[in-house]
Amino acid sequence: MIAHKREPVLSVRGLSKMYGKGCPSCQTLTGPEFNNNVCPVCSSILALHDISFDLYEGEILGIVGESGSGKSSLVQCLYFDQDATSGEVYLAHYNEGKDNVLNIPASKKRYLRNHLMGMVYQNPVLGLKLNISSGGNIAEKLLAADLYIYEEIRERGKKLLEKTEIPMYYMDEIPKKLSGGMQQRVQIAKALANNPPLLLLDEVTTGLDVSVQARVLDLIKALQQELQISMIVVSHDLGVIRLLTNRTLVLKNGRLVEVGLTDQIMEDPQHAYSQLLVHSML
């Protein structure tokens, strides 16, 4: 096991995300006991409820759970794609972790997204503009961080392609023409553009060929070792989680049902749902 510094780069406390208006019964009538996240009274979806965890420097944290358990909602709230309904999020790199970044102004959130975070979406359409060249997609992240020197943007773009093992001649090609695996690499290159301390990866290998999957996973592992970025890796594939992560959160119907070292969860899952999850995989 890698020893981590004890300072969390990211602290999440009591995070909740509701799609819909919500009512007093939402909390009490949803969750793993009901095997449901839809409130029977008001039909709101309680996608996440009272989620708390820390992410330590240089750590890869896994988030696993069945479809609809709230994995994407969680990373999208952290990346400000979705507004969390309540809760607190602290980033060590932002004002020494003193501010709940869920409450800072939109312009500051934009700054955080562009300078301190990178995101790779399950669906490349969300992370890339498929009609703009790969280099242009990477440039967007650099421009969003106020780099307005054309030649430097080109140089940085080339280095990022190199780092993510994308052939140089794809730089000025539109991602629409690239394979799914290449598109995910371009997303990773874009996410890394401003050397963020935090990288969010949502189902980065889902839908790829097994051999392509393996190479993308190798790349992520290599990048993490080289750059010491803290990462959150979302997957419903325990194989991916086992390969990449040190610790894992298990989500079910929007609730956190288990947290622990990935190896321990795989060997000896505590929560009934985790047991089901692990055993169904074996």
Binding site: A106, S107, R110, K129, I132, S133, G135, G136, N137, A139, E140, K141, L143, A144, Y148, Y150, I153, D172
Partner: peptide, 18 residues
Amino acid sequence: HGESEYSPLWVSLYEDIV
């Protein structure tokens, strides 16, 4: 405009130059 998110416009200039 509200968030000064002008990078997509900048990207169109970048693409033109490429």
